[in-house]
């Protein structure tokens, strides 16, 4: 589904990704974790070409990423993304947020786009707020709308960039529940998150990054009970100590 081979990414003279290789099979759920600045957000932003890479290659759903607008379009049609800051469009209602891309990119009729949007809004249990503006919703509700908005494009894979980090603690659960149910339905997912409970519950693999490198990857059971690398242990000790 997603294949990264020997990817290098530089910001000027700072190397953000070092020789990163990663294969994600259809239906797999990957959790990416690591200290801030370790390159995990950069990694997933390369997958839908929000960031460009300098070396290596990335293949998404059979498309080999390049600067070609055609390829980028094809990839973005297949991959949905959810951001830390939600990034809902403030001047559009919830429903309008959800139908914009399906109408513009997938060329659906308004009626079809609305039907799809209502179905997904129902799924994230926010169907009754469709006519409201983002600013009238709580953070947790906004993030669920953002998930529905991405789903409306019927993507084959979903990228989550710290989806619960900007939320008040009492709203984290509603967003995680939505993500768990999405995982149960077989969606391919790559999630940058520090929610270790979520990782245990749904991840097929947990990947630990530090300084732009993939340090360790394992199934959640072994990752948490028996981390092999010293940096992984230090990191886990750090975040588990805070709960």
């Amino acid at each position: 589904m997603i294949e990264m081979r020997n990817v290098d990414k530089w910001y000027g003279s700072f190397q953000a990704l070092k020789d990163v290789s990663l294969t994600v099979l259809p239906g797999e759920k990957i959790v990416l974790c690591g200290p801030s600045g370790s390159g995990k957000s950069t990694l997933i932003r390369c997958i839908n070409h929000l960031e460009t890479i300098q070396k290596g290659e990335i293949v998404v759903a059979g498309h080999r990423l390049s600067d070609s607008q055609k390829v980028v379009d094809a990839v973005r049609r297949e991959v949905g993304m959810v951001f830390q800051q939600f990034n809902l469009f403030p001047h559009k209602t919830v429903l309008e947020n959800c139908i914009l891309a399906p109408m513009r990119v997938r060329k659906l009729s308004r009626a079809d786009a609305e039907a799809t949007a209502r179905r997904y809004l129902e799924r994230v249990r926010i169907g009754n707020q469709a006519e409201k503006y983002p600013a009238q919703l709580s953070g947790g509700q906004q993030q669920r709308v953002a998930i529905a908005r991405a789903l409306c494009m019927e993507p084959k894979a979903m990228l989550f960039d710290e989806p619960t980090s900007a939320l008040d603690p009492e709203m984290v659960k509603e967003v995680l529940d939505t993500m768990v149910s999405l995982a149960r339905d077989g969606m391919t997912m790559i999630c940058v998150t520090h929610e270790m409970g979520f990782a245990r519950q749904v991840a097929d693999r947990v990947i630990f990054m530090s300084d732009g490198e993939i340090i360790e990857e394992n199934d959640p059971e072994r990752f948490f009970s028996n981390p092999t690398h010293a940096r992984t242990r230090a990191f886990l000790g750090e975040i588990l100590a805070h709960r």
Partner: peptide
């Protein structure tokens, strides 16, 4: 306008002009 707005639009498959 926050950069995230542009990124969200691009991630949804819209072009820069759109």
């Amino acid at each position: 306008i926050p950069k995230g707005q542009t990124e969200a639009g691009l991630a949804l498959g819209l072009h820069r002009g759109e």
